[in-house]
Computed example of a mutant assay.
Amino acid sequence: MSNLVVIENTVVRQDVFGRYCLNDLHRAAVAQGKATESQRPSGFFKSKGTRKIAKSLGNNALKTMHGGVESGIWVVPELGCVP
């Protein structure tokens, strides 16, 4: 992890590749009333369009980490997930 971004008192982690933790962004949006629990990050990638864009951006465009301190879905800003 290299940088921390804070949105309305919610820390949004960024990794060394410049990807943001989509789970953190979702948590911040829910806290602001701009998203619901049903709009979880896992649902974002069920869209064929989203997967196609991520694939076109290359291997480092997204990373899913299961377990540990850095668990979550990590995405590059080009996926349109960063405010």
Rank of each mutant, 00 (worst) to 15 (best):
K55A: 15
A31Q: 09
N59E: 15
A54W: 00
G72P: 07
A29K: 01
S42R: 13
G67S: 14
S38G: 06
N23K: 04
Q32C: 14
A29E: 02
K34A: 15
L25F: 00
Q39Y: 01
R27T: 11
G33I: 00
V75M: 04
L25G: 09
L57P: 07
A54Q: 00
A35I: 01
K52R: 11
V69W: 04
F45L: 15
W74P: 10
P41I: 04
N23P: 02
G33H: 03
G49C: 06
V75F: 04
L25M: 13
N23S: 14
A28H: 04
A31P: 05
A28D: 08
K48V: 12
M65N: 15
I53Q: 14
A31G: 11
T50W: 01
L22I: 08
M65R: 10
K63P: 00
T64Y: 10
T36D: 04
A54C: 12
K46T: 07
L22V: 13
E37V: 11
L57I: 02
E70V: 05
G68L: 00
K63Q: 11
S42M: 12
K48P: 12
R27Y: 01
V69G: 07
S42V: 07
I73Y: 05
E37S: 07
V30S: 02
S71K: 14
D24C: 00
K34D: 10
V75A: 10
G58W: 05
Q32A: 15
G49Y: 10
G68D: 06
F45M: 12
A28P: 08
H26W: 13
